[in-house]
Every structure is written in C-alpha cells, then in structure tokens.
Computed example of a mutant assay.
Amino acid sequence: MADVFVVGAGLIGLSTAYELAQRGVAVTVYDRDEPAQAASWAGAGMLAPFSEATPDRELLALSRASLERYPGFVDGLRERTGVDVRLRRDGTMHVALGEAQLAALAAVADTFRANGGDVALLERGEVLAREPFLAKDLAGALYVANEAQVDNRRLGRALLAACRGLGVRFERVDEIALESDARRVRGVRTPYGFAAAPVVVNAAGAWAGALDGVPESARIPVRPVAGEMLAIALPPAAMRSLVWLGHRYLVPRDDGRLLVGATVVERGFDVRVTAAGMHDLLDAALAVAPALASFAVVETWAGLRPASHDGRPYLGATPIEGYLVAAGHYRNGILLTPVTARAIAALIVDGAAPELAPFACARVGGRLVPAANHTS
C-alpha cells in the first residue's frame, strides 16, 4: 500500500501510525515537537467514561468500547516494547464532604449505573477503609469500580518505541501544509519541500483546525481549551483510587506522585501555569485530603485540550479524497486512543469503519460531506 502521512505525534497520531504499520502500511508522522508531548504528555490518563456522565449516547458507546480494548492494547505494546504503561483498575471514588453532596451523588448513581458503571454508594467508614488518606470527616462517596487509569507519559513512550520498531518514520518540521486539488489530497509541504502521499491524517490535536492548506470545505472547528495541573509527592501506595470532588480529581501514580487536575480555561494557545489555577487545584486537593498540606508540590504544568463544536471528536473522511481527520477529542483523547486508531486504520486499509458514522465531519454545520472511500 502507498504511504500514509500522519500530522501530529500525540497519542492519537502515534496510535494511528502504530495500527497502520501493523497492517503493513508505510507511515510517516510529522510534528513540530517531540512525539507524545502537548496534551498527550499533560493529561492525567484517566479512563473514566462513566464518571464523565455524558448524555451523548454515541460518545459513551465509543468510550466504553475503547475502555474494553485497553487491556489488549497495552498488553500488545508491552510485548512489543517492554514498556509497562501501568494500567490500573482501582476504580473512581466521587467523594462527598457533606450530606448535601452525598445526596447529589446518590441522585446520579442510577445514571452512572445505566451508562454501564459498576456503582456503589459508600458510607464514611467504607471510604476510609479503602482510602485512609482522605479527610476523616467526609460524608461518603459514590464508587465506580470499573474505571481505570494509565500512565499517559509511559503510553506515549511505548507507542513511540512500537512505531519505530515497525519502521514508522518521524519528521520534525516547524511548518507543514496540506496540499490538494479540488478533489483529492496530493501530500504535504514542509520547509524541506513537497512530499507526495495519497492519504493524510490530521491528528494535530488542538492545532488540527489550523492546519495550513486545508480547503475551507474540509476544515474542522477545533479550538484549544487550557488545563492546568500539579503533582504532589506521596509515599507509594498512599492512595489507590481515582478521587473526584466535583470536577477536580486526584490521580495516584505508582511512582508516588499524586496528580491534581484540572482547570478548564478558554484562553487560546496560552499554556501558562497561573497562581489562580494552582490555588483552585490545591483548595480542592486539601479539602479531599488535608494531610496533603505537609507534602511537596513537585511539578506544575498546563496543556491544551482539543475541543469540538459539539463535544464529539471529528473522525474519518472529509470532502477531500484521501484527507482524513482524527481530532477534537477534548477530555477523552487518552480514553479514546485505542478505538480511534483501530477505526481510522480500518477506514484507510479496509475502506469502512461503521462505528465512526456518528462522528463524521458532515455534521459541522452541514458544511462537510465525507467521501465514501479513502483506500489506496
């Protein structure tokens, strides 16, 4: 099969290249930065489709399918590369600091359960028996047993190693533009000249909507949404579960770091870490676990989530034959990595991926109409 170019070396781009290379496709990945940086590096690695409580049934179904694929996905990467991405299935604890919060959690328990969550309401003693590091006066918690996490930075390293082992080429370029005629893609142009390919996949994350050279009829309205996070050093195994308080969360890592996230700020491509953001996160963390006050903050960072116009990612074909998109995953990029990569690879190689229909670019204001077949 002829070459496929992937623009963007985040988890979505790397996993797509990995799936294609396993099918014998020659793949080149372009990015302006080192692979697996940006949102792929900045995320928390939560695999929590039920806790997100999305009312979007199609997105929930895609998220559940991706969660089911994760064990086999990471096992294959470990066998190929030796990198353990530390898939942990310790569940999610939504804690309540008072009776009103506990009542609100009880009211949503049925929704979580209907979405497929393995849900239980826990009293204070049950919560502390499982997570003794948490606040002693909390009211209780809603526990979702069938959610998980991965170390997204290790996942990026594993995908990069797997891609290189399969012969995927990587090009670091400061600028890149799509080249096409009125009907189909021709390739890409970089400062090093023109490179021809019959298929180009836009997996450029928060920058996907700004890819140069894309005809207006095929442009996707991705926008960046900033998120700030911090990490606190804890003794290993001090906490096991993902812990949520409202929209803030604590994610324990095997190396002893406790990730605390994340703010949601619409401010363009600004990735500053702000005093207000850190104050917000630390307030939530100390409310959940006051003992954290005596531990060191060891890292702060910010990343850009790629948001779409309606909360769904843009996946699949566009009116330009051979130009595909895999972007706009917003908060679910890490969760949706396996299912996105598998479906995009199937669309390219086999000519069909029915699961992508609800996420087609055609829904963007009725402006985009995807082509039927992008094989070559």
Rank of each mutant, 00 (worst) to 15 (best):
V4A: 11
V4E: 09
E19D: 14
E19W: 13
L20T: 12
G24C: 08
V25M: 09
A26H: 14
V27F: 10
R32Y: 12
A36I: 08
G43H: 10
A44H: 08
G45Y: 10
M46I: 00
T54N: 06
P55K: 05
D56E: 12
S63C: 13
L77C: 12
V83G: 15
R86S: 15
M93L: 10
V95Q: 01
A100T: 06
L105G: 14
A106V: 06
A107P: 01
D110G: 08
L121G: 15
L122N: 09
E123Y: 02
V127I: 04
L128A: 03
L142S: 02
D151G: 06
D151K: 01
N152D: 12
G156N: 09
L160G: 02
C163P: 11
G165V: 05
G165A: 15
E175H: 15
L178N: 11
L178C: 09
E179S: 15
R184P: 00
V199K: 01
L211W: 13
R219M: 05
I232V: 14
R240V: 00
L245D: 00
D254T: 02
R257I: 03
L258H: 13
G261R: 09
V265L: 03
R267P: 02
D270F: 02
D270M: 04
A275E: 13
A276R: 13
H279P: 00
D280S: 10
V288R: 02
P290K: 00
L292F: 07
E299Y: 07
D310V: 07
P313K: 01
E321H: 11
Y323L: 15
A326K: 05
Y330R: 04
T337R: 05
A352V: 13
E355S: 08
F359C: 04
F359E: 09
G366A: 15
R367L: 14
A372N: 06
